[in-house]
Design a protein around this nucleic acid. Structure first.
Lengths: 106, 106
DNA sequence: TCGTTAATTAGCTCAGTAGCTAATTATCTA
DNA sequence: TAGATAATTAGCTACTGAGCTAATTAACGA
């Protein structure tokens, strides 16, 4: 299940804070680490977990490695879960009404 | 932080499955336990975690304890997080890496 | 009241994760 | 090429969480 890694990645305050930082701008590993009172290897591990969950992507730029947020992945998994748990709640799009109808019929 | 308990509660497949069951109807602890191949005490513990995170509520009904989903809490925290991470779309500019490195050195 | 059922709490083991420092890899620059 | 910088991997310790069984609490019914 992709949701496993997804929610496991979010179950850590430092990792959620990293996502918040990356929501404003892309950052290098060092720039991220400098925002925490935590060793660089620990931050590197958190970044690895986030990347394994598909929440961020990385790209080497010379000496640096730049991380950026995967907004689509985040939003899609989050809304997917919201619909699974709360089919009747939340902001409904047109398409979702068909899905809700199917689920009720099933 | 409320988000701490919230995301910690969701970082478990059995707990997410419990929420899915409760999204259809309220259930007693025993009815929930019967849907898993897991001991009743383990399920009880999961329910306690979910309740501590505000995701479910319980009410004793005679011999039984009935659990139900707290939809509002779930949706509110989820959307709150979504807004925190994805406030505005669009990638922002960054200063050059060399410049940033010099600043760090200074 | 006594026995039965529902559920939780207590106490334990085991696995996994977070954090650290030290070592390694990759890249840049003088 | 040597030295410096960025980041990761390796290896370790400590803690937390998941699961179990046994024991306890709460409520029902004969």
């Amino acid at each position: 299940m992709a949701a496993d890694k997804f929610f496991e990645a979010l179950a850590s305050r430092p990792r959620r804070e990293i996502l918040a930082y990356l929501s404003a701008q892309e950052l290098t590993a060092g720039e991220i680490a400098s925002r925490f009172e935590m060793s660089a290897p620990s931050i590197s591990r958190h970044l690895s977990v986030l990347e394994g969950a598909g929440l961020v992507s990385s790209e080497r730029q010379g000496q640096f490695i730049v991380y950026r947020l995967n907004r689509d992945s985040l939003v899609n998994t989050l809304t997917g879960f919201a619909f699974e748990i709360c089919p009747k709640a939340g902001p409904l799009k047109r398409e979702s009404r068909k899905l809700a109808a199917k689920k009720q019929g099933a």
